[in-house]
Amino acid sequence: MKPTVNFTSPRFYVPALFLGALALLPVYAMLAHQPFYVTLFSRIMIFALAALGLNFILGYGGLVSFGHALYLGVGAYAVGILSFHGITNGWLHLVAALVVGILLAALIGVVVLRTSGMTFIMITLAFAQMGYFFVVSLKSYGGDDGLTIDNRSTFGLFDLASNTVLYYVILAFLAAVFFLFGSLVESRFGMVLRGVKSNERRMLALGFPTFRYKLVGYIISAQVCVIAGFLLANLTKFASPSYMVWQVSGDLIVMAVLGGMGTLFGPVVGAVVYLVVEEFLSSLTPGWFPKVEEVLNKHWLALMGIFVIAMVLGFRKGFYGYLVERELKKEAGRAQP
């Protein structure tokens, strides 16, 4: 069966609109003399990438990992530590980050995937915390204060010194991972993973070694976060333990759920919405209601908290997830009148 593109489907137009707008954003920023937008949306896309990675096992594998910030840190510190020793080659950074990332994810995966449900949530959190304390205690690499990176990674033919180049590299990674996951979740491997989510016991009975599938899924998902960490360190020229604090893991889950967990593009929508709201609230300038806005500006995190609670209680499907589900219902209705 040849896949046909349905232009009226949200599964086509939402990603197309978002990716198109993101591709044009630097042009707008240049015309409007707001270079700040380029770095802001670079950051947003990095978190969108990480949320995409997390969603692969969260949404498709049903594994609630509360520790994916760990892998952001792995990517960031690979750049930081290698640059500290004078190695600025981006290929080396990326390879080192992925090698360490794969080994770490495999090692951690073997332990955490033996558990399930609640224990899984907590143990992934604990491992991320362990990584956090590990980098905090690396006194020679900045410890608590983090590690400044003098120059962004160089890739031989080009380097990431320009914000715009970095922006498009991030966008390219985001689009690539999106399309890769698009075919991966429809592949045999993806189908098994989704089968594990809905009924692991049945998959076992059908003869699938589910543990291996989950492990590979976990490792793939972690590596996307490693790449996001690599990009984050390049963007901020800084590797900091703060990338690995447990709130970041929580934020990533919120982004995935906000956009629509278990949908391909949902995490990107969620990340954009979450971080734009965050940016808006934290940079409110006194306008109509100076008193109220001052309080909000200082305590915007409380509003984010209420936002998250409201989302869980009332809007569990997420923005993109809602659109997709509506479309699927319509299709089902047409199939069986």
Partner: peptide, 24 residues
Amino acid sequence: ERDHLDQVLATFGLILVFNEVARF
């Protein structure tokens, strides 16, 4: 009655709220 993910998220939101209440 919800799944663990919802519980984690909602209580994660509560943490943010409580911290700001204390700061306020």
